[in-house]
Design a protein around this nucleic acid. Structure first.
Length: 942
DNA sequence: GATCCGACATAGT
DNA sequence: ACTATGTCGGATC
């Protein structure tokens, strides 16, 4: 259940007659507990309080005798079972009053039962939704979205023609208008705090099956789009001429684009009318334009309705972008200005010339937060100078591109609401009301595809702000004056946002084409770029040509592995630099079903820098954010030069070759459990069975077998029916695949896609493994064992290679240049092993390293049967194994520089330097040519 | 013929 | 429902 559904269920419960026996279960049910769970709870209730029900890790709830609520809550609190079962909430009610306590915080609430729905945010953790302050104290956003969603669906049901593409904009506009009207009547923008809802209730009829709500709404909208004599200019068509009826004439002129014309209104069924009135009953004053906006976005999108838009960027994450991008610097300037009126006024002028542009703006979160923060700074300036408090920050300085029409509409509205709220809060309610109408121009939000639009047309090259404001809105006069005073001031542009991430395999043809347009002339590998790359290149182009600065939240792989060589040369060639960055952190917002993705934030400069030193932020274990200054931040988001490690098909250093394991591509038919081996494979065919290792088998010691059938023994293998059957099933599975490569493999169904194996021994390294272990866990498997594609192997290689793989040096290298799965290490031969810089090794070096590798293996063996996972548990790594690794590191690092490295930073610096040297001598003075050598290409063509 | 990747996937607890 | 930690196979080179 999402928050909206829970709100509805809780409201329903609050209205129901009180049933003492059932209430605890009904309560749990309202918070999304499943029927099976409730059934189990009824049978097996461990509460020791009379009338109590206890659910482990969740709640201890009891129905009290009339008037005994306080005593019952105390009993719940004192019950040893509450603590033992780590209960989150204690609740007691007698049917009239409710008392509740959150155990973790001690927060206490007491309220009449019918008001339960007002407090549902308090209990949201019961449903696994961690309540952020704003939602907890202010469930209005959730309620509002739920009710609008109902209305939207009902309107579509009643007016199927409005679901068509060409009608959608009108429906979107209608919803935005309604939100504005609800907001306006609750904030005193309309005179009388129920003017809008009451007018509808009063003047629209409610007869069975028929309402004229649409006509009434059309009248009200007509009034709001038509000037009165006082505020119209002489050419306006005034109310009377426009045919505005008397009951609508009490509404003010609003226009501002939102009410540009009367607009069409769809038919309202009786239910739709009720939903409309019901929505109007909420108190819209406290709406959060950011939260509400991102949630309401889902109302109009079929694919998002299930999650109800809980995937928006949270305010803390938005600030991680905006603060280093420009807000920190403004606050710094504010501090420096002190009480100097001249400096303060200059800073205020600067604020009026800052443009914020989000080319993936959704419902405008980033823009709204940026606006709010800028208003706070301006407010502080005004407090110190005593100047006119009317804001000089025009909404027209806020630009956006959004592909979904409804979201774009909401973004414009959200900015207007944010402005009104800022005026109310920072100046006065009265001033806010007097300034708000008629609405002036909101942010310039363009509906369209950001990768196909010309950003310069959306947000034209910096020019002084001289935009005529609509009929002297709140900031118009002052903004004009200011801009006249300071035409020579520079306009600053900051690009920000959270664009969509789609990896190359999941992109649609259209999306691929968009990437092609931006990248095909820049890089060969554009087909493998993540969709988000499109925003980076367009921002870099804009920055570099117009001195803007940009910062995006992005999937972290943009700064890892192959992406670095695919994307970053194109960016760096434009002369942009990483001005600040935030290293990987896990995406999170209010949602229970958070997107499973790890992100970075990358801030790009224009071709001039505003900061002397770039700043690198990273989240420590305790969630605090560490701030480091650096000479330069590399595309890998580590301090260091803009060095890019490119895939190599052979090792640069004189080390063994590494190949990938073997991909089954078998629908599970070539793989066997030990039981299947005993049951299906006759003893005289056991030579066809080998033990096979994926990452998991290697790390956890799980046992799995496979059919390993060389071409010369296929016929002999096929004699056994159970084996023949498995081969047949493999053929079918491969034929079913949509992949042409897989279908070709159907011709050799006895084979894995590859058949790589060692004759003597194989050095193994898992493709994906936990980042929590102190070393990469390479090891050995036997002569007859084989690998799946989840491992890389050095077949029949010398043991000193294992010493390299097991070293801190290698870990540091892999952690930096290879890709990651979330935070896991994602090892690859071409990026990690073949590029690993190793100095030339003497025979003695190799002998020393071989001994080190043997010692590591011996230390592991001493703990038989501990698995690799046991041995490298970060908390419990055995001392002798740790010492063996220490000796290995000591030996290897002496080979590099004659002593131990002081830390990982020094290790990485040295490795990068060595890499530069090795690639320079390798590719000659022309430096790395992107393509293969001419000779090789010819070979390929032949 | 060989691969890097995943607004992830899934087994445990 | 979190937490921990790696499957699997495809479009692409």
């Amino acid at each position: 259940m999402n928050a909206v559904e829970i709100e509805e269920a809780v409201s329903a419960l609050a209205r129901q007659p009180f049933d003492a026996d059932e209430f605890p279960y009904a309560f749990l049910q309202a918070f999304g507990r499943k029927d099976v769970e409730l059934k189990r709870l009824r049978k097996n209730n461990t509460s020791d309080v009379v009338g109590g029900v206890l659910r482990r890790d969740s709640i201890h709830i009891a129905v009290a005798a009339p008037g005994e609520v306080g005593a019952t809550l105390a009993a719940l609190r004192d019950s040893p079972k509450s603590a033992a079962n780590r209960v989150k909430f204690l609740i007691a009610t007698d049917g009239d009053e409710v008392q509740a306590e959150e155990t973790a915080t001690g927060e206490f609430r007491s309220f009449p039962l019918p008001e339960l729905d007002r407090h549902f945010g308090f209990f949201l953790p019961l449903a696994g939704i961690s309540a952020v302050r704003q939602i907890k104290d202010n469930p209005i956003d959730v309620k509002a979205v739920g009710r609008l969603n109902k209305l939207y669906l009902e309107l579509l049901r009643e007016n199927p023609d409005w679901a068509k593409e060409e009608k959608r904009p009108e429906l979107n506009r209608l919803m935005a208008r309604l939100v504005f009207c609800f907001f306006a009547e609750d904030t005193g923008i309309f005179i009388g705090d129920t003017l809008f809802t009451a007018s509808i209730r009063q003047f629209s009829e409610d007869r069975a099956g028929l309402t004229n709500t649409d006509q009434v709404l059309a009248q009200l909208f007509l009034a709001m789009s038509t000037p009165t004599k006082e505020n119209g200019n002489p050419t306006s068509r005034f109310r009377q001429a426009a045919g505005v009826k008397a009951y609508a004439d009490v509404f003010p002129y609003v226009n501002g684009g939102l009410f540009e014309d009367a607009g069409a209104v769809p038919r309202f069924s009786r239910a739709a009318r009720n939903y409309l009135l019901h929505a109007g009953e909420l108190d819209w004053k406290e709406i959060n334009p950011d939260i509400f906006g991102s949630m309401i976005q889902a109302v109009a999108e079929d694919d998002e309705r299930a999650s109800l838009g809980m995937h928006y960027t949270s305010v803390p994450n938005i600030l991680k972008v905006l603060n280093p991008l420009f807000l920190d610097e403004l606050n710094e300037k504010l501090g420096e200005a002190g009480d100097s009126v001249r400096k303060l006024r200059a800073l205020r002028r600067r604020l009026s010339r800052i443009r914020v542009f989000d080319p993936a703006c959704g419902s405008g979160n980033f823009l709204v937060i940026a606006y709010r923060q800028m208003r706070e700074i301006e407010h502080e300036i005004v407090k110190r100078t005593g100047d006119d408090p009317k804001s000089v920050i025009p909404l027209t300085n806020f630009y956006g591109i959004e592909i979904k029409g409804f979201a774009a509409e909401i973004a414009r509205l959200a900015l207007l609401i944010a402005e009104f709220q800022a005026d109310s809060r920072l100046i006065s309610q009265q001033a806010a009301r007097s300034m708000v109408l008629p609405l002036h121009k909101s942010g310039k939000i363009v509906e369209g595809n950001a990768l196909r639009l010309d950003w310069l047309e959306v947000c034209p090259p910096a020019a002084p702000v001289t935009e005529e404001r609509d009929l002297g809105g709140p900031t118009g006069q002052l903004a004009l004056e200011e801009s006249r005073l300071s035409d020579r001031d520079e306009v600053e542009t900051y690009i920000c946002g959270n664009p969509p991430y789609i990896w190359s395999n999941d992109q649609t043809a259209a999306q691929k084409e968009e990437i092609e347009i931006s990248f095909s002339s820049r890089t060969k590998g554009w087909k493998q770029l993540n969709y988000v790359s499109g925003w980076f290149i367009k921002a870099a182009e804009y920055n570099s040509a117009h001195g803007a600065h940009s910062a995006f939240v992005s999937i972290n792989t943009i700064c890892q592995g192959q992406h670095v060589e695919l994307l970053w040369p194109s960016l760096l060639r434009l002369g942009v630099h990483i001005e600040f960055a935030h290293t990987s952190f896990k995406w999170s917002n209010l949602s229970t079903n958070n997107a499973g993705v790890t992100v970075v934030i990358v801030g790009l400069s224009g071709n001039t820098k505003i900061r002397a030193r770039p700043v690198l932020y990273s989240e420590c274990e305790n969630k605090a954010v560490e701030r480091r200054e650096a000479e330069n931040i590399s595309p890998y988001l580590v301090p260091g030069p803009d060095l890019i490690v490119r895939k190599a098909s052979r090792p640069l250093a004189a080390v063994a070759n590494m190949a990938r394991g073997n991909m089954p591509y078998d629908g599970g038919n070539l793989l066997l459990s030990p039981e299947q081996v005993t049951a299906e494979i006759p003893t005289d065919r056991m030579s066809l069975v080998r033990r096979i290792f994926g990452s998991e088998e290697f790390i956890y010691g799980a046992v799995r077998y496979c059919l390993w059938i060389r071409d010369d023994v296929v016929d002999w293998a096929m004699e056994t029916p159970s084996i023949a059957k498995r081969i047949g099933l493999t053929r079918e599975a491969r034929l079913r695949s949509s992949d042409v490569g897989a279908q070709a493999l159907a011709l050799t169904p006895h084979r894995f896609r590859e058949m790589n194996a060692g004759n003597r021994l194989t050095i193994v390294i898992p493709a994906v493994s936990s980042e929590n272990r102190p070393y990469l866990t390479a090891g050995l498997i036997g002569a007859s064992d084989v690998l799946t594609n989840r491992n890389y192997g050095i077949f029949d290689g010398e043991l000193w290679n294992l010493a390299l793989l097991s070293s801190k040096m290698h870990l540091v290298w892999i952690a930096t240049v290879c890709g990651r799965l979330e935070m896991r290490y994602s090892y690859t031969n071409t990026l990690g092993w073949n590029t690993f810089p190793v100095p030339p090794l003497t025979t003695q070096d190799k002998a020393d390293l071989t001994r080190c590798a043997e010692d590591i293996l011996l230390a592991r063996e001493a703990h038989f049967p501990a698995t690799i996972a046991d041995l490298y548990d970060p908390e419990a790594m055995p001392d002798d194994l740790r010492r063996a690794h220490e000796r290995n590191d000591e030996t290897l690092e002496r080979i590099y520089i004659g002593r131990r490295f002081r830390n990982d930073t020094e290790r990485l610096e040295h490795l990068f330097a060595l890499y530069t040297k090795m690639t320079a001598s390798d590719a000659g003075p022309g430096k790395k040519s992107l393509s293969k050598s001419p000779r090789k290409r010819k070979e390929k063509a032949a």
